[in-house]
């Protein structure tokens, strides 16, 4: 049996999901559209950003929203040398855990920087807003060094 010519074809499989976000994440996203960042107060007083629906310790429903700062501190980070298509930036950047001022729990987002050596644990960063906000996490386009 002879070997046939190799056949190849590119495919794209798309799952076009929409997701309902619920009242807590919905509030977070609505506030982002207004260029505010809110967290939620847990039973032990910690402020969690993005807000979660239920207390991490007691599982009770949470509802006390707290506005937090638009600046914060890098808790940890990973430098992305070669961004991929789905990444939020088309040049090297950092994924970072950022503890915003007034929050007790870090939030993941991207940090724009010219070089990996510019990014450090403990560095101060501030949110950069998208030109147009729509109520999505990308309303914060990125964080940059403050």
């Amino acid at each position: 049996m002879s070997q046939p010519e190799v056949l190849q074809q590119s495919f794209e499989l798309g799952f076009t999901y929409t997701r309902s976000v619920g009242p807590v994440v919905g509030r977070f996203l609505t506030e982002l559209r207004n260029r505010n960042i809110v967290g939620i107060k847990a039973s032990d007083g910690r402020v969690v950003v993005p807000p979660m629906e239920y207390d991490p310790d007691t599982a009770e429903e949470l509802s006390e929203f707290v506005e937090v700062g638009q600046e914060g501190e890098i808790v940890s980070f990973a430098w992305v040398k070669e961004p991929r298509e789905a990444h939020p930036m088309d040049r090297p950047f950092a994924w970072a855990m950022i503890r915003l001022d007034g929050a007790d729990v870090p939030m993941i987002h991207c940090v724009a920087a010219n070089a990996e050596s510019d990014v450090a644990t403990g560095a101060r960063v501030k949110a950069v807003w998208a030109d147009e906000t729509i109520g999505f996490i990308t309303d914060i386009r990125c964080f940059e060094l403050a």
Binding site: F11, E12, L13, G14, F15, Y17, G26, L29
Partner: peptide, 13 residues
């Protein structure tokens, strides 16, 4: 108030 988001997943291969 925001009640939903689009969350598509595309697999290109």
């Amino acid at each position: 108030v925001i009640t939903g988001i689009e969350a598509p997943v595309y697999l290109k291969y």
